[in-house]
Nucleic acid binder design. Structure first.
Lengths: 230, 230
DNA sequence: TCGATACTTCGATTACCGTAAAAGCATGGA
DNA sequence: TCCATGCTTTTACGGTAATCGAAGTATCGA
């Protein structure tokens, strides 16, 4: 643990930050949100394979950590020290970074799809609302169940809870929302809920992106039924 | 001034820090003292030419600044932001740096030669003492003159002020002390003063280094005459 | 069981960067 | 005017690392 060792580790950390593609990834993660390797590849303008190598190196230096979730792997900054170091470097670089540009475009941040269920601010609020209304309960660490009251409520929305339960996939569970860093509803039930919302015209799927556009009707219903302001 | 630009500058700064030789130089400068390129070359374990290239790059990224002084060029960190950034990186690297090792070995720091005059804590204190006693006065920005009282005082020490004034070199001036970051006395007068001090046995020159060993007699005289505690 | 998606590992190519010797430049002092 | 010292620039070389496509692995859903 001599001083040369310490310098060497410092060099390694700085080198990990220095590569332009990695710099861009780190800056993108500076808002604290987690992102997939594919997204970060696009941000950095490199191929997925290259991005993977870069992320491995960042992880090796304990600059980012990875949270696997299904077939996705979400990357985020390791801790506050890392963010502080990068911000200190930004200051030295004299780059007058905008006070705060929400790095995730706002429409995406507020409501989008995650695979086949809802994600974003709306989804997280809805997730919390469903627990508050006692439609959902926790069956274990991360798996949910639907209460009797929930069964009735979902039925009114044409969400077939029994079918979801019978599906050959996980029924209902929390899924870490990468922009909000809190869980939203996933699994067969989450998928059925999104399907119902689209069917009923509460929201419209953007064809080009994962964004969800909330309709006026949807806005009203969500507020009245679930206490969710969009 | 777009965001890609800012990232590129960040990369460049991090890359400048990342190279092991440069990392060592920067860490060495972390105590705020200025050092010559030769010293930093030794610290980094590279040849003078290589060190020069490295320092040029650090200067290019505004990480260090250079203060020419005679044929020496003193390098130091550019500002507090740079030190902060490096310390933030050290934290991330998880290197438990010693609370504070005085990077300059203490004997050297307290008294040494700088070319042909005294440097270090002693020299800086002596410099201030000479002004307090009104032996010296400022003739301009960085050049000094000897007062009538000073002429008498120096004469008592066998320091020939007239000869120093006649010498074909700068008479008396401030010279930035690289460990104290405040000026000590240089020029022909500074050289004559050191010569006298050595002659009178106040201090002894170390043959292998620039260190000066203060004798007991020297310690007493310096305290009594100049109010300088060594 | 099977395909689709997300991501990683492997292999070969290419470009860049650190390195030191030698030569050049500037300053200081005799 | 001259030399010595301290430092920089130039030049050529060698090694490291970034890159992408292709192949491999894991997970999910049908």
């Amino acid at each position: 643990m001599d001083v040369g060792d310490a310098d060497a580790r410092l060099s390694a950390v700085a080198a990990a930050i220095a590569e332009p593609a990695r710099t861009q990834m780190l800056c993108r993660l500076l808002d604290g949100c987690a992102r997939t390797s594919t997204e970060l590849a696009i941000v950095a303008g490199v191929s997925p394979s290259t991005a993977s190598v870069h992320l491995a190196r960042l992880a090796g230096q304990k600059l980012v950590k990875v949270t696997p979730q299904g077939r996705h792997r979400y990357y985020s900054l390791c801790d506050a020290n890392v963010a502080a170091a990068i911000e200190a470097l930004i200051l030295v670089a004299g780059a007058p970074r905008q006070p705060f540009e929400p790095a995730t475009p706002d429409p995406l941040r507020s409501a989008r799809t995650c695979y086949d269920h809802m994600a974003g601010r709306l989804a997280v609020a809805l997730h919390d609302g469903l627990f508050e209304l006692r439609w959902l309960s926790r069956s274990n660490e991360n798996d949910y169940d639907v209460t009797r009251k929930g069964v009735e409520g979902f039925a009114e929305l044409d969400v077939d809870v029994a079918a979801a339960r019978a599906a050959r996939r996980r029924f209902a569970c929390g899924c870490l929302d990468w922009s909000e860093r809190r869980p939203h509803l996933a699994g067969a039930l989450g998928a059925a809920l999104l399907a119902s919302a689209l069917r009923r015209g509460w929201m419209i799927r953007d064809l080009d992106s994962r964004a969800l556009a909330i309709t006026r009707k949807g806005r009203r219903v969500l507020r009245e039924r679930f206490g969710v302001e969009v």
